[in-house]
Write a protein that binds this DNA or RNA. Structure first.
Ligand code: ZN
Ligand code: ZN
Ligand code: ZN
Ligand code: ZN
Lengths: 167, 167
DNA sequence: CATAACATGTTATAACATAACACTACCAGT
DNA sequence: ACTGGTAGTGTTATGTTATAACATGTTATG
């Protein structure tokens, strides 16, 4: 059986971006980036990114594979994982560890350590900015350790879901 | 084939606790907690916790299962996952999302949002305290969202590993 | 003792991820 | 044009992590 991953309601923190613009911007930005870096934005890579940015919600690798299959691409697992790794290396996709899922980056311009807010009911996910949100995550400067990557995920319930339900 | 999960070197951030004491304390604390809460600290639960606290390093569920098998317990997957879920509910075990592994809590007294420092070379893991370490993680108070659980993991390389190796 | 709640055991399968190798296209140096 | 290297994609098989569903035993509690 399949794990549910629908999502139906919204809450303010999840709605603070204009996704129409977000989508167009994202495509343009990734194109420019690849051009500038002399990287190939192949049909497969473009398609995977489009699948992720289209609804701008986290998708499991196998959901991406299904979508690829529907669009005439190969849908064996390594296809998705390789492209996802590539897009993550360049900061256009992040992995949500708590969901084993992947999501298109919401702030692909500046390099950043992403933080995510995840509603465990509707499974909506928002990528937040250190400064913009209440969260202040002082740059981790641990003694005797060089931090290369941080994972920050906040799971809970959004207002819409909590007001709608009987817990 | 098996993923490596050995760990051989140490760095200061990983050595700031006396594990002999840590082990004894942990056992005593979990016993007291279960007694006070009228929960059953069954042989299976005790064994799982002992396996985790013994070396105080992250173990995969299937590693725990092997250890259980060696000690005469059943070693089918649900056994481990159920006990781990239970111990996590009560704050005595945490899951390291970046490693798909479980580790005994280092600060089982006070309720806390654990944060972890993970060396990707030796796979040593330290659970750090907000205040004690350089990290300051302001309590996330996001608008229109009630945070229930935070995941904070910092991956990098410890001094020992970085000084030892040719990157 | 009845019975409900909790705990463990067992089988099967789902969900997630990678290894290894094959094939093609493209480009650089000869 | 030949050669060898690199990058991208395709394919098969398998490894790894986690859960569903159901059976059995064990422990309060009225
Ligand atoms: Zn968007
Ligand atoms: Zn929600
Ligand atoms: Zn310890
Ligand atoms: Zn190390």
């Amino acid at each position: 059986m399949k794990k549910k991953r629908e999502g139906k309601t919204t809450s303010k923190i999840f709605d603070d971006h204009d996704h129409g613009m977000c989508f167009d911007d994202a495509i343009e930005q990734i194109e420019n980036y690849f051009l500038k870096k002399n990287l190939q934005f192949t049909p497969l890579r473009r398609k995977v990114f489009e699948i992720l940015i289209r609804d701008h919600k986290p998708l499991g690798a196998y959901e991406i594979l299904e979508a690829l299959g529907r669009d005439g691409f190969s849908s064996s697992p390594p296809i998705a994982y390789r492209v996802l790794d590539f897009l993550m290396e360049h900061g256009f996709v992040h992995k949500i560890q708590g969901l084993n899922a992947f999501i298109a980056c919401s702030h692909p311009n500046h390099s950043h350590s992403p933080a995510f807010v995840i509603c465990r009911k509707c499974e909506k996910v928002a990528e937040i900015d250190e400064k913009k949100s209440g969260i202040s995550f002082a740059s981790p400067n641990i003694k005797n350790f060089e931090v290369e990557k941080t994972t920050v995920e906040m799971t809970g319930v959004c207002t819409t879901c909590s007001s709608a339900a009987t817990i």
